[in-house]
């Protein structure tokens, strides 16, 4: 294989492996932000979800129960954030950071006994059965959570576009005044969207601990939850675009190691930063001065 092919295969594999947590967290963040609230605490939900998923999988022997546990733990943290932000004058950006700290703290604290044992992992789907090339076979060993994430993206897209619930979330997110005029329960809808969003982030964490890299330790997350905030902007609050953004971030993450394998060893720190540069460039190129970002919910505190 030529160097270019090697990099392409590696980036494809990286896409499929690394992107899933990005996808779940960005979908969760997207859902929350659509209701007009921002949640930086999703990093905490991701880490707590990863720990709980690993612990449940180890205790019960069933990794799917682990995924449920991760979602529940993330969701609980989201409800806490959502509930506290319901109180008047509580700032959601700052509270998110506090929740992130509390969530990672709890995950590290209660995760101590699970660093050493190996928990049962989620099975992966061998989509590369047709190929004789081992690296393609392994690249196409895809976690079922990846497809669940894609399905969730389409599901969210449909919910926002075609259902009453989605419409209500969007109205609440775009204009609290309009929502009030329509008699919508603003705070309850936001609470639901924040809880559900963090539950998705928790599933992203479950992917980290039960699929890839498939391990629990305190260095598991490298800030995927925080990065999701940038990713959602990148995706313009569109769940389908979140898929593309997550794949792109995943591929960019795989770029650094694969470049080294073909002998490009200069500046790996800079290659590791590629996704952020891409986000910044995207923002600069596509945002027009004097008007809000297309697709941005009007009630979002970071938009005001």
């Amino acid at each position: 294989m030529s160097a270019i092919e090697t990099i392409l295969v590696a980036m494809l594999a990286g896409c499929l492996r690394v992107s899933t947590p990005f996808l779940f967290v960005s979908l969760g963040e997207c859902l929350t932000e659509k209701s007009g609230r921002i949640n930086l605490g999703n990093e905490g939900a991701l880490v707590l979800g990863a720990m709980v998923a690993y612990a449940v999988s180890y205790q019960t022997g069933n990794p799917w129960l682990g995924v449920l546990g991760g979602a529940a733990a993330g969701g609980a943290l989201g409800l806490l954030h959502g509930g506290l932000c319901t109180l008047a004058r509580v700032n959601d950006v700052a509270m998110g950071i506090a929740i992130m700290l509390a969530g990672t703290g709890m995950a590290f604290f209660f995760g101590k006994p699970y660093v050493q044992p190996s928990a049962p992992q989620l099975p992966s789907i061998p989509l590369g059965f047709w190929s004789d090339v081992p690296r393609i076979r392994s690249a196409l060993n895809v976690s079922p959570l990846f497809f669940l994430g894609i399905a969730a993206a389409f599901g969210l897209y449909y919910i926002f576009r075609g259902t009453r619930m989605g419409l209500r979330i969007r109205i609440v997110g775009d204009s609290a005044d309009a929502a009030r005029a329509l008699g919508l329960p603003i705070e309850r809808i936001r609470l639901f969207a924040t809880g559900a969003g963090s539950a998705l982030a928790g599933i992203g964490g479950a992917f980290l601990s039960l699929s890839y890299p498939g391990s629990w330790n305190e260095g598991l997350s490298s800030g995927q939850g925080l990065m999701a905030v940038a990713l959602v902007v990148f995706a313009r609050w569109n769940p389908l675009a979140c898929i593309g953004a997550a794949l792109l971030f995943g591929a960019a993450g795989a770029l650094g190691p694969s470049l080294q394998t073909v002998g490009i060893t200069w500046g790996y720190y800079l290659f590791y930063a590629a996704p952020y540069v891409a986000t910044l460039v995207m923002l600069i190129v596509t945002v027009a001065p004097g008007r809000a970002l297309a697709g941005m919910p009007g009630e979002l505190s970071i938009g005001r």
Partner: peptide, 24 residues
Amino acid sequence: LPDASVLVLQGLIFVCILASDTMY
């Protein structure tokens, strides 16, 4: 106690003080 207990304590302090903003 492991180091993480300090994170838990910090998290609790932050959450409580930030939430107290609502009392003003």
